[in-house]
Design a protein around this nucleic acid. Structure first.
Ligand code: MN
Ligand code: MN
Ligand code: ZN
Ligand code: ZN
Lengths: 149, 149
DNA sequence: CTTGCGGTTTAGATTCATTCTAACTCATTA
DNA sequence: TAATGAGTTAGAATGAATCTAAACCGCAAG
């Protein structure tokens, strides 16, 4: 359960924070390590509870602060599904999110460049988009290759 | 400013409510009329304030109730952008939403069937999606056909 | 060293959209 | 006329997120 970053990830974190004019702190390290350790799109409370295991004095406010800082530095994305608590995702590749209606689990769905292009192409002239968010809601069944056609 | 439904829309509303086991009420008529009159994706408070002009005794709780009922009957979609207040949209055609970062305005973006298909195609086997939400965030410039190439 | 500074962290208060509760209204039916 | 039950209402409660002000801490100047 001990959350710590390897050298490589710590350097990445430090560099990204530096570019955003922010410092590396023990709290930020722990919170970032939590995000990397289990990529299940945790809520703030989930991050808080996991991070407290390695840093018991950590406060909820600091988790909010750290995550906001990471988003500002482009290290992490916020994931919103309807009115639920915000979730956090350290996957920087272009991807959509799929939420399983039954389990509540959130899965990353890779977004091929050609799909991105077709999406951008639906914008009328004069519409200039920086961010596209795509979220699916549905169910996941275990995939059985033997019984798929 | 008086909000009332024409015969055609009232019938549509009554039919859709009926299918969902719900009744047509004066409050529901006014709230639905507000949504049809100005398709700017109003928040609950905006709907409330507009609807009160034709029905002063209307309560905020009822606006929440009516909108929830409409969503349940498939008459209206909820539109979420990040953590902002939920907005409501009576456009039942498949479409995405574009939010202007500067004005806050939300625009409908038509979703051609082939884009829907390409989107569905990115789901891995076993992922079955009922709802796809697509939202753009960006800026809109007035489009000048003379100076576009 | 010692002090001051500024960014960070912290606990707790506050905000505010949304949901909940319980009383009331009112049309329909027994 | 009375009972029923869906719908409406005002206000209370909820809870994620934000705000506030004090404490903390690394660092640099004196
Ligand atoms: Mn790297
Ligand atoms: Mn019609
Ligand atoms: Zn993700
Ligand atoms: Zn819309």
């Amino acid at each position: 359960m001990i959350q710590s970053l390897n050298e490589h990830n710590r350097e990445d974190l430090q560099e990204a924070l530096g570019k955003g004019g922010q410092k590396l702190t023990p709290q930020r390290e722990v919170v970032f390590a939590v995000l990397l350790a289990q990529r299940d799109h945790p809520t703030v409370d989930e991050v808080f509870n996991r991070a407290r295991e390695s840093m018991p004095g950590l406060s909820l406010a600091t988790v909010y602060n750290c995550l906001e800082t990471f988003v500002g530095c482009g290290l992490v994305r916020q994931v919103n599904h309807e009115r639920e608590s915000t979730r956090y995702c350290p996957n920087l590749a272009p991807h959509a999110h799929f939420r399983d209606k039954e389990t509540g689990q959130v899965h990353d769905i890779e977004l091929p460049p050609e799909v991105m292009k077709s999406l951008r192409s639906i914008l009328p002239p004069g519409f200039d988009s920086e961010v596209i968010e795509i979220s699916f809601l549905g169910r996941t069944k275990a995939y059985d290759p033997l019984h798929s056609n």
